[in-house]
Amino acid sequence: MFPQSTVLDPLFWMLLGAIQVLLFAGVNQWAKEHQLGMNWWKWALAGGWWFSFVLTIAGAFTLLGENEGNAGWYFLGFAGTLLVIAGAGLLKVLLVLRDKSQQLA
């Protein structure tokens, strides 16, 4: 990340890791606010989606960094689009199931 420095690199990744914690805490709050009724499999799906999303971006930019420009963009476009669709699908599932859990409650 920072070729000139040996200190900045680990610091940067630690910061990113810390942001992940904040992100999940934020998502938790958001889910509560919208009464999504998150349980283990909903969390697993959401976490899995986010993990694949991060991997896709990392993978695509690794390809770009290795001078595989076209492959990088195609990978980002293809996997990224599929993930965006999957994300929209997941959101829809979560919102649909919320209605049911509300009715039950």
């Binding site: 076209n70 195609y74 476009g77 689009t81 965006v84």
Partner: peptide, 20 residues
């Protein structure tokens, strides 16, 4: 078919995402 130029690829991605 995943066949076409880069411009058409970007166009397709655009159409697919906008379709949502």
């Amino acid at each position: 078919g995943m066949v076409g130029s880069l411009y058409l690829f970007v166009l397709t991605v655009l159409v697919v995402i906008t379709s949502l």
